[in-house]
Structures are given as structure tokens and as C-alpha cells.
Computed example of a mutant assay.
Amino acid sequence: MGCSKEDLVRWLPQALGDLYASARVEVDDHIVLNSDRPLIHISGRSYPSRKIALLHIPVMELHFSFAQNLSNDQVESAMRRFDLYTRRGGG
């Protein structure tokens, strides 16, 4: 993803929707959000920014895992919402 840790933290409430209260998020080995019984677990690692001319784009790799009691439809819906909310375009 082209985002920083701060961007991700700011986007999470809207990007996760109802799952936000049931999420565990770790970035660079630091807990950012912690639920006692997480339905979704996101782990991330920051990498050096990509540079294109004078533009610096932050780089973060995210991994998602979901509780086994969520259906495939619920997982697909959550990923679709996250993807749509975090898309950024210039245009």
C-alpha cells in the first residue's frame, strides 16, 4: 500500500466499518489497535518510501487474517470495503 502508519490509523475506522471494534492491528511490531476477541487481524510492515522525481510515496505491506467463524461473504465484503476506502487516485 502507498500509505504511512499514520495514514492507516486515520483510515481504519471507516475502512473497517463494523469490524473496527473487533480488530487487532500491528504495524512494525507495535500494537495500533487491540480487541480482546479480534475478528480481523492486520499486520503491517513499513518499508522505505519510493521516490519518483520529487514525489515520495510511503510503502507498507499488510497481511490480513480473519476469524474462522466469519463466512466467506463477510470476509469478501470486509476486503472490498477496505480496498474501496483506501484507494487513492489522482485525476
Rank of each mutant, 00 (worst) to 15 (best):
G2R: 02
G2S: 11
C3Y: 15
S4E: 04
S4C: 13
S4N: 05
K5Y: 05
K5T: 14
K5D: 09
D7Q: 01
D7N: 04
D7R: 01
L8W: 07
L8V: 03
L8T: 09
V9Q: 05
R10S: 00
R10Q: 00
A15R: 04
L16W: 03
L16E: 03
D18W: 09
D18C: 10
Y20L: 10
S22K: 09
S22E: 09
A23K: 07
R24G: 12
E26R: 11
D28C: 15
D29S: 14
D29P: 06
D29H: 09
D29A: 06
I31S: 03
V32M: 07
L33G: 02
L33R: 07
N34R: 10
N34C: 12
S35A: 13
D36Y: 14
R37Y: 12
L39W: 04
I40P: 02
I40L: 11
H41A: 05
S43H: 10
S43E: 10
G44V: 08
R45W: 07
R45N: 11
S46A: 04
Y47G: 09
P48K: 00
S49D: 14
S49V: 15
R50D: 09
R50K: 13
R50C: 00
R50P: 07
I52G: 03
A53S: 15
A53V: 08
L54N: 14
H56T: 14
H56Y: 15
H56K: 14
H56A: 14
I57V: 08
P58I: 06
E61S: 02
E61N: 05
E61V: 08
L62T: 02
L62Q: 01
L62K: 01
H63N: 03
F64T: 01
F64D: 01
F64M: 04
S65C: 10
S65P: 03
F66R: 06
F66G: 04
Q68R: 07
L70R: 03
S71C: 01
S71A: 04
N72I: 13
D73T: 13
E76M: 15
S77F: 14
S77G: 14
S77R: 13
A78Q: 02
A78M: 00
M79D: 06
M79E: 14
F82L: 07
F82E: 01
F82W: 06
D83V: 01
D83H: 14
L84F: 15
L84H: 15
Y85Q: 08
R88N: 04
R88H: 08
G89D: 06
G89E: 12
G90C: 15
G91Q: 08
G91P: 11
G91I: 07
G91D: 11
